[in-house]
Amino acid sequence: MNPFDYERAADAAGAVSTVTDRPDAVFLAGGTNLVDHLKLGVAEPDLVVDINRLELTEVEALDDGGLRIGAMVRNSDAAADPRIRRDYPLLARALLSGASGQLRNAATMGGNLLQRTRCVYFQDTSTPCNKREPGAGCSAIGGYTRYHAILGASADCVATHPSDMAVALTALDATVVVLGATGERRISVTELHRLPGDRPEQDTVLEHGELITALELPPPRPGASTYRKIRDRASYAFALVSVAARVDVDTAGHAPVIREAAIALGGVAHKPWRARAAEAVLRGAEPTAETFLAAADAELEAAEPLDGNRFKVPMTRGAISSVLAELTGVPEALPESTTEDTHE
C-alpha cells in the first residue's frame, strides 16, 4: 500500500472540491471495496478523503411518492427500512443478497454503485489488465472467465459489474444525484455505468471529483417484483447470474395479459443489464412458460459467451423464466429429460 494523505470531509461540497483539485485523490465511504484495493495495489491514491461523517444518511419520502436515499445510508439500513421493504421489495432483496451482514453494515448506497469488477486479473497486479492499466491487454480473454460477461463485452474487457443492488435499481429506473465542482446533476442509473468498449478503465460516466449524494426511486409501480441471485454458494458469493424483475399482469379480461414488465440482469455484463428486448416480448403478451422463454431468448440473442462461461446462457434463460413464472404464478417449463447424459 502506497502512503497517502488522509482528510476527513466536513461537508459534501468541500469533499468534492478537494478531490476535484487532486487528480489522485479518492473518496472513502464504507471502504469495503477501496480498502481491499489499497491493499492489493489496485488503487494507489495520494489522498483519501473520508466522507463517513457526511450527513447523507436520510431516507426521505419525495413529493411525487418516490423515495430519496442518502448516499451514505448503509446497505443494511436501507434493506431494513420499512418503506423500502414495503414498496421496493426487489431492492431490499437485492441488498440482502449481497456480501455478508458485516459488509452490508459498512457498505454504502453510493459506494455499492461504484464497486469495481471482481475479475481476478483486475485484482491481481501481476497480470495485465486494460481496466487497471489501459493498453496493457486483457488477461481474462483466454483465461478464467466463470464470472465474466456474456453481453456487451469488448475485445478489451469482458469484466462484469458485481453489484446486486445496482441491478435492482436498474429495474426500478432509479436516479442518481451527483454533486460536482460545478453543481448538481441527475443521472438515470441505467446511464450511470458504461459498457467497456475501448475504454474499460472508465466504469461509469462520473467525472473525477463527482460525488454521489443520493439515489431517488420513482413512485412504486404496480405488479409483483423480486430479485433472484444464482450463485455457486448458498450465500456470501457473487452472482453468476441475477435477475431483478417486476411484472404487472392485467387479469381483468378473458385471458391474462402482461401490462408491463421491467427486467434487469446481473453478472452478465460490464453494467447492470436492462433487458429491454425481453421486456418488449412480454409487453402485451399472455403470461405463459413459452412467453417467458421467448422473452429470455430475445434478450440472449446477442449473447457472446466465452469458453469459460457458456453455461451462463442457459442459466440466464432458466433464471429469467423461473423468476417470471414465480411472479405470475404460471407453472415453470422444465428442461427436457437428460437422463444418462454425462458431463465431461
Partner: peptide
C-alpha cells in the same frame, strides 16, 4: 484452484473467489 496455464499461478487465490462452504451451504 484455477491454475492459469499462461501465467502458472492460481488466479482465484482468495476466499472470495476460491469458495469453501459457508454456513448456509
Amino acid at each position: 484452484g484455477e491454475l492459469d496455464p499462461r501465467f502458472g499461478h492460481v488466479v482465484n487465490h482468495d476466499l472470495a473467489e476460491y469458495h469453501v462452504p459457508v454456513n448456509a451451504d
